[in-house]
Design a protein around this nucleic acid. Structure first.
Lengths: 143, 143
DNA sequence: TTAAATGCAAAAGCTTTGCACTCAT
DNA sequence: ATGAGTGCAAAGCTTTTGCATTTAA
């Protein structure tokens, strides 16, 4: 529900001593409710339907802040623009190399796989994610 | 060796009816010999040591062309600029969220794992790659 | 009260594009 | 010969930044 999501954001923000502004609440809610892995500009457009005065640079700054504090994730696609998501369940991505669309994929077998031995030497790993590049159904049918 | 790599490129380019220009040869060779997952600008800088007249936009155009034809891969990082590699052995990436450095990781157990059932519905998958985000050794030590 | 967040506008940075010329085939 | 590739310069987009104002704590 609306309140539940907002409360969750407020709780996480407070824990990290981030100020809770209407802009931030709305940006987080918009992203959490989207399944489109939206870009900053898309988020801006959506947020403006509820808070018309929000500026694009606030969206950029907020996304950067929330990402740094681990509340949201940047999705690495081959797209020119950065795209984001709230990572609230274990999943991976199928990225279409043609249209750049991103689809969520669940893969429990992978989630249970232990990390390769050498990783510890490289650094401290966080979330292992699989990126499945490919051509999506829609693009296959179009040629 | 030098010739071997060049020959390999020429063969692949011819198969795809791409013209073999000195610029393309040098761009491919530079990328193939690099282990740094370089950006277009870095490649441009390196290539210029052998072919001083190559322009940056030719590098961009060549990288786009070679990527479209599958001779090179774009590496999806959280970095602002696009980065590339010649994918000549099975490996995955450890990406440092702080310095954006990309390290290669081998993971034979993953390579043997069958793809999740649902993928076929999404489209035609190509290479499954794992992206391990984390904080690299160097950044850990610096704070 | 006060440090952080926002909005605006301008700038920066990466990448793309139009056009005339060159070159691989 | 001829169409693809290149270099140059200019433009296009996304993203960042400086500064004055507002606001959450």
């Amino acid at each position: 529900m609306q309140t539940e999501l907002t409360d969750r954001f407020i709780k996480m923000a407070r824990e990290r001593k981030l100020k809770v502004t209407p802009q931030r609440v709305e940006i987080f809610r918009t992203l959490a409710l989207s399944h489109e892995h939206p870009s900053a500009e898309q988020i801006h457009k959506d947020v403006r339907e509820h808070l018309p005065a929000v500026s694009l640079d606030t969206v950029y700054r907020t996304l950067a802040t929330l990402e740094q504090h681990g509340l949201i994730d940047r999705v690495n696609t081959s797209d020119d623009r950065a795209r984001y998501e709230v990572h609230d369940h274990d999943h991976h991505h199928f990225v279409c190399v043609k249209c750049k669309e991103v689809y969520d994929v669940e893969w429990p077998e992978f989630d249970q796989l232990p990390l390769p031995a050498g990783v510890a030497d490289l650094g401290l790993p966080m979330q292992p994610r699989v990126e499945l590049k490919g051509i999506c159904r829609k693009c296959q049918q179009q040629g």
